[in-house]
Computed example of a mutant assay.
Amino acid sequence: MRLNSLLPLPLLVVLGCGAPALAQMPMGQEAATCSAPAELPAELQSWRSPVPLKAGVDRKTAAKAMLTAGQAVTLALSPTPKIAYPVRPAKPGGSVSYGGLASFTVAQAGTWRVALGSSAWVDVVKDGKAATSIAHGHGPDCSGVRKMVDYSLEPGTYSVQVAANGADSLTLLVTRLP
């Protein structure tokens, strides 16, 4: 009697698969095949030309890490244990993750978007309170925009808290939606 005739069919299928096949995306989720970069909407136009910016590690240094609305940055982050977040992030990350703080000014009330090139946790904070997000989504396929979070903001100065990032930098963009 052959060995494979003794094994149930599902076990044969698993044994016959290599590790890459087991690591595939869940059913119904296929990775986008990109032959060219995606067209970006007007509010994301600077995504492909970010400027470098070192994130702050506390309120004082966050004030010096000023974001310009509509300009993408490559944000240099610090190890999570070095960050003094004004508001504890819901997902702060562990000792091997990265985070940071930056500031931006809202001149005109409206819907503001924070776009990230990773799945890091993001909060927008003013006066010791995290703003409530009004929408979440992904950027266009093949754009490099992994996550977008929208907020309804009034004029003032805000901090962006990035937490639980897996690398020591990420692309980030804060922009007002039309």
Rank of each mutant, 00 (worst) to 15 (best):
G93V: 05
S97K: 13
T105C: 02
A84T: 15
L101I: 08
A76L: 10
P86Y: 01
K91D: 11
K91W: 12
P89T: 03
P86K: 09
Y98I: 04
K82L: 15
P79D: 10
P89W: 02
G94I: 08
F104P: 00
G99M: 07
G100Q: 05
S103P: 02
S97M: 11
Y85W: 12
K82C: 11
A107Y: 08
A76F: 02
S78N: 12
G93W: 05
F104A: 01
K82Q: 15
A84Q: 15
S95T: 14
P89A: 04
P89Y: 02
A84E: 14
G94D: 12
P92S: 05
F104H: 00
K82P: 09
P86D: 02
P81D: 10
L77R: 01
V87S: 03
Y98C: 00
G100H: 04
V96R: 15
P81F: 11
L77M: 04
V96W: 13
S103T: 09
P81T: 10
S103E: 06
P92G: 06
A84L: 13
V106F: 03
L77G: 00
F104E: 01
A107N: 14
I83P: 02
T80R: 10
I83W: 09
P81Y: 11
A107C: 03
F104Y: 01
K82W: 13
S78G: 08
A107D: 11
L77T: 02
A76G: 09
A84W: 10
K82G: 10
G93F: 05
F104V: 00
K91I: 12
G94M: 08
T105Y: 03
R88Y: 08
S78E: 12
V106N: 03
F104M: 02
L101R: 09
V96G: 11
P86Q: 07
K82H: 14
S95E: 14
A102R: 09
P89C: 02
G94W: 09
P86T: 03
L101V: 06
R88I: 09
K82N: 15
G94C: 07
L77I: 06
G93Q: 07
F104S: 00
A107I: 05
K82M: 15
A102Q: 07
S78K: 14
S78W: 12
G99I: 07
R88F: 08
A84K: 15
S95Q: 14
I83E: 04
S103Y: 05
A76P: 01
P92D: 00
G93A: 07
P89R: 03
S78R: 13
T80A: 12
R88K: 15
A107M: 11
L101N: 01
G99Q: 08
L77W: 02
P86V: 01
P79G: 07
G94N: 12
L101E: 01
S103W: 05
Y98H: 12
K82D: 15
T80F: 06
K82F: 13
A84D: 13
S95L: 13
A102P: 01
L101G: 01
A102I: 05
A84Y: 11
F104T: 00
Y98V: 04
T80G: 04
G93I: 06
S97E: 10
F104G: 00
G100L: 06
S95N: 14
T80Y: 07
